[in-house]
Each structure stands twice: as structure tokens, then as C-alpha cells.
């Protein structure tokens, strides 16, 4: 039987040193057994490598930055949909999720499916709200506090011990070992991502990650835990290995069933010296290393698309343990005309 062909738009094509998940997600989609795909890339910057990888992305359109607002984004998506007839959109950046969630119903009415967290899930898991989140769902989180001015840093020494982690609302995190550093990171990060700044107690230990997919009804459709083996100076995994830790899987099931999480996610965990897992962050989307999950038997991008278009999906329960991913850099040779096309016309 001929597989049906879906037109799927994917963002996060920045397969660079601090990569977006787009290219890895697309690899999963291209290997899907239940459908064929035409891939539409959605890009923000004209040098996102995915734009030029023609065996990965069939056609790319630039879209406006999230700070232009949902209305502007919608106008652009209408234009793209008119030409491409999109079935599904998979947004992969934290900062753009808000706009896509806001447009979810409008897109649905246009015939475009998404599978995103609800606004409540999205807000609740936000760094700023992590302490309440931990309390509500009985999940251990490091002590943290949102602050609005450098003046507040001085009073932090009552509640915190150095080192502390200074985090931006959307991205960026730096470890501060003294007040001066804390102040300087506050200024740097707030200039870029606005207020508040989240100050989090630094937890000594080993970092673990787990990626998964929730169906929105409390069922865990997929869950693959991984330990980073090599971390770049930007804190990104360069290599990692799947592991077999029942406590991590249990924690994931608890997270999904309690929050009724809908969509892909990544949990960043720290195993402290007390041998307990602390939840550092919940990323409301698939991580850049998602292809590892595909490679060990859980095609999360495929399952997510099937959920988005309303297909029945059987949960994955197994995966190969002890499989590794090693990320590598690859220089493409690109004609300037291609750069020219995407730069001036916003399409390639």
C-alpha cells in the first residue's frame, strides 16, 4: 500500500554549535514508516545550515521573529500554506512556542495540525514558576527565585550559597561564584531576554536528560533517558549515551501523568550527591539530540505527527540501551546565489 504523503513544516534549522532540533527532527520524519513527507523549513536567519541541506529540507521560508507578534506570524504562515498546503507544523524554539500556541485554533481551522503543550502547561513549567511546579507535582527542584533588579542580588545571600546559576527567561545560563559575577550576568542576560532573571541554587552532581512525548491525556508515548558524555563550552551535548535507569523513567511517567503533558519535551535532571534526581528545567519541545531516540527505536517525531493528525499511536516501551550519539560538524559548499535568494526573497 502506498504511504500517504504529509507536508510538514519544521523550524529550528540552525544545526550549529548550539543547535536547534530541526534537522534531527526532520531525519526522524524522513525515516517514518507510517508516512512519506515533504519538508518545509521555517527559518529566521539566512545562514541556518538546514536551509542549504536540500536532501533534508525541500523548501525553506523565512518567518518573522517571535517579537513581531502572532498576527504577523499568521500572515506569513497563511502565505506559506497557500502555496504548500501544510498538514503539520512542528515549531522547535522555546521563544516561538508562545505564538504558535496562541495560533493553535486558527491554524487548526486552516487545516494545519500542531501538537503543542497547553498554555497552562507551558506557563507552569516555566523556569520562573519551577518552585511552585515542584511543590504541586511533588518533584524535587533546586531552590530558585525570580528577581527584577541587581539590587535584589545582595539580599540573595540569605537564601542562597554560591555558586548560583543566573538564568534568562528563555535562554542563557551562567554560573556565578560571587556577587560581582552574579551582577554582571544579570545585566548581560536581562539585556537580551528581559526580566525577570531566575537565580537557581547550583546543584553539584551529574547531569542527565530524558526526552519524551506525552499524548495530552496523561499517557507517556515515548521516553528515552540519556547521559551527556561530552559537553561543549556552551553546555550542549556533543556526545551522549542511552541509559537504563528506572527511576528516571518513573519520574517521566509521573511528570506526564500528573501534568497531562501534551507534545514533546526534554527534562534536564541533576543527580545530586545525595543520589536524588533534581529537575533543573523542562524544555517544552524536542531536544537537539532527538535523533538518538529515533536511533534506539523510539521515533518521537513520527509519533508526534501521528498524534497531531489524530492517528492512534501505540506507546513505545523499549529502546536500545548503551547506544551513543556523537555529533559532528560538516562543511557544505554553497553557491552565493542560494544565500542571495533566501536573503532577498525570504524563500529557497
Amino acid at each position: 500500500m502506498k504511504k500517504r504523503k504529509l507536508c510538514i513544516a519544521v523550524s529550528g534549522l540552525n544545526a550549529i554549535d548550539s543547535p536547534g532540533p530541526g534537522v534531527a527532527v526532520i531525519r526522524g520524519l524522513r525515516e517514518a514508516e507510517s508516512f512519506d513527507v515533504r519538508i518545509i523549513g521555517l527559518s529566521y536567519e539566512s545562514l541556518e545550515p538546514g536551509i542549504y541541506m536540500h536532501d533534508v529540507v525541500d523548501k525553506t521560508y523565512q518567518i518573522p521573529y517571535p517579537n513581531a507578534g502572532a498576527e504577523t506570524l499568521l500572515a506569513r504562515l497563511e502565505y506559506i500554506h497557500d502555496i504548500e498546503k501544510l498538514d503539520v507544523i512542528i515549531p522547535n524554539f522555546d521563544a516561538e512556542l508562545y505564538s504558535f500556541m496562541k495560533l493553535e485554533d486558527t491554524l487548526k481551522a486552516m487545516g494545519i495540525n500542531t501538537f503543542l503543550p497547553t498554555m497552562m502547561q507551558f506557563e507552569e513549567r516555566h523556569k520562573v514558576n519551577l518552585p511552585e511546579f515542584g511543590k504541586k507535582y511533588d518533584i524535587k527542584v533546586p531552590f530558585s527565585k525570580s528577581i527584577f533588579s541587581t539590587g535584589e542580588i545582595y539580599s540573595l545571600s540569605n537564601d542562597f550559597e554560591f555558586p548560583m546559576v543566573i538564568k534568562g527567561k528563555y535562554y542563557d545560563a551562567s554560573i556565578a561564584y560571587n556577587l560581582e559575577q552574579a551582577k554582571s550576568y544579570f545585566n548581560k542576560i536581562s539585556a537580551k531576554w528581559g526580566l525577570p532573571i531566575v537565580v537557581q541554587q547550583f546543584v553539584h552532581g551529574t547531569e542527565y536528560n530524558i526526552t519524551g512525548l506525552g499524548d495530552g491525556k496523561g499517557n507517556t508515548i515515548a521516553a528515552v533517558p540519556m547521559r551527556k558524555q561530552y559537553i561543549t563550552d556552551k553546555g550542549k551535548a556533543w556526545g551522549g549515551i542511552t541509559i537504563d535507569d528506572k527511576r528516571m523513567i518513573d519520574l517521566t511517567h509521573k511528570f506526564v501523568s500528573q501534568t497531562k503533558w501534551r507534545g514533546g519535551f526534554e527534562l534536564e535532571l541533576m543527580k545530586g550527591q545525595d543520589n536524588e534526581f533534581y529537575l533543573l528545567e523542562i524544555n517544552p519541545r524536542m531536544p537537539a539530540w532527538i535523533y538518538l531516540a529515533v536511533g534506539v527505536g523510539q521515533n518521537i517525531p513520527e509519533a508526534m505527527v501521528n498524534l497531531a493528525i489524530g492517528e492512534e499511536v501505540i506507546p513505545y516501551t523499549d529502546y536500545e540501551k548503551g547506544k551513543m550519539f556523537i555529533r559532528y560538524a560538516w562543511d557544505m559548499i554553497v553557491d552565493i546565489n542560494e544565500f542571495h535568494e533566501i536573503s532577498t526573497k525570504g524563500e529557497l
Partner: peptide, 13 residues
């Protein structure tokens, strides 16, 4: 024609 200017001396567009 589409208004793309390339300066081959310094590689700026």
C-alpha cells in the same frame, strides 16, 4: 535584478 549586491573584494553582501 532582485537587488542583491555582492562585493567580491571583502565578501560583503
Amino acid at each position: 535584478d532582485s537587488g542583491f549586491v555582492f562585493n567580491p573584494v571583502n565578501g560583503e553582501s
